[in-house]
Amino acid sequence: MPTPPPTGPLVTRDTLGAELRALGVEPGEILLVHSSLSSLGWVCGGAVTVVHALLDAVGPDGTLVVPTQSGDLSDPAGWSNPPVPEEWWERIRAAMPAYDPLITRSCGVGVVPETVRTWPGALRSAHPHTSFAALGARAAEIVAGHAPDCRLGERSPLARLEERGARVLLLGAGYDSCTSFHLAEYRIPAPLVEVGRPAAGGGWEKVTEVSISAERFDELGRDFERDRHVLRGKAGAADVRLFPVADAVAYAERWLALHRPREEEMLHPPA
Rank of each mutant, 00 (worst) to 15 (best):
I103S: 15
I103F: 13
T104C: 10
T104Y: 11
R105G: 01
R105N: 02
R105Q: 12
S106F: 03
S106I: 01
C107M: 06
G108F: 05
G108A: 07
V109L: 14
V109M: 15
V109P: 01
G110E: 13
V111T: 14
V111R: 14
V111C: 03
V112W: 12
V112M: 11
V112F: 12
P113W: 13
P113F: 09
E114C: 06
T115A: 11
V116P: 10
R117K: 15
R117M: 06
T118R: 15
T118C: 10
W119Y: 14
W119R: 08
W119G: 05
W119Q: 08
W119V: 03
P120V: 06
P120L: 11
G121F: 00
A122R: 10
R124M: 08
R124Q: 11
S125A: 04
H127Q: 05
H127T: 02
P128T: 02
P128V: 06
T130R: 05
T130W: 07
T130M: 11
T130G: 00
S131P: 11
F132Q: 11
F132N: 08
A133Q: 07
A134E: 08
L135A: 08
L135Y: 09
L135F: 09
G136T: 09
G136P: 10
A137Q: 14
A139I: 03
A140G: 04
A140T: 00
E141T: 05
E141C: 07
E141L: 07
E141R: 13
V143K: 07
V143L: 08
A144C: 08
G145D: 08
G145I: 04
H146M: 11
H146V: 06
H146F: 04
H146W: 09
H146G: 03
H146N: 02
A147M: 02
A147E: 13
P148V: 14
P148Y: 08
P148E: 13
D149R: 06
C150P: 00
C150F: 00
